[in-house]
Amino acid sequence: MSEVLKKFTKTVPHWRPRVTPVRLEDASAAQLEALQVTPSNTKVSEYVLVLAHDVETLKVRSPLFNAVMYDAAGLNRADRELGAIGASMVNRCIYCAAMHATRHIQASKSDEVVDAIFARGADADLAPRERAIFDFARHLSDAPPRADAEDVQNLREAGLDDAEILDLILSTALFGWANRLMHVLGDPVRRG
């Protein structure tokens, strides 16, 4: 049995489902369409095959995720990823945190922020902009959410405008969704 990971890591683990994924050979026409399976593309992750059990939601979810994380203008890539990481740490989604740590490192071209927050969490030593973003993301991710006017004021003082704050709300909130699926429906295990 592979080891289930409990600590945050920059190495993206393998995700092992706790429910049985849809089998491609049993998939309905609607599922195949949502999975975008074609004769030349039959590679679908187990995670997406799990989500294919609810095909109507899966069909909306993919374009929504792409728009929130990658649409042009507004908040820069690295800061959207930092919102995602903040949520993933609150919800303890080891897989999501690793995946978006990797993307943050790519976008910011530095390991510095990820290393600091994985090592010390809320007590990490961060520059004012990262501090404001990380705190807002953590507070919005709590249940019930407890982000407040002071958190927003800190974002504004760090230089974020309304469009950037809206994007941060979106990426953070979206990971309230993604974390619950990944963390609850499967286990992160060491690859190999």
């Binding site: 939601t57 919005l140 991710s141 249940a143 959410p145 709300i169 953070t172 909130a173 979206l174 309230g176 969704w177 993604a178 974390n179 619950r180 699926l181």
Partner: peptide
């Protein structure tokens, strides 16, 4: 999970 997103 959708509700978690929407309420935030």
């Amino acid at each position: 999970a959708f509700l978690a997103y929407q309420l935030r």
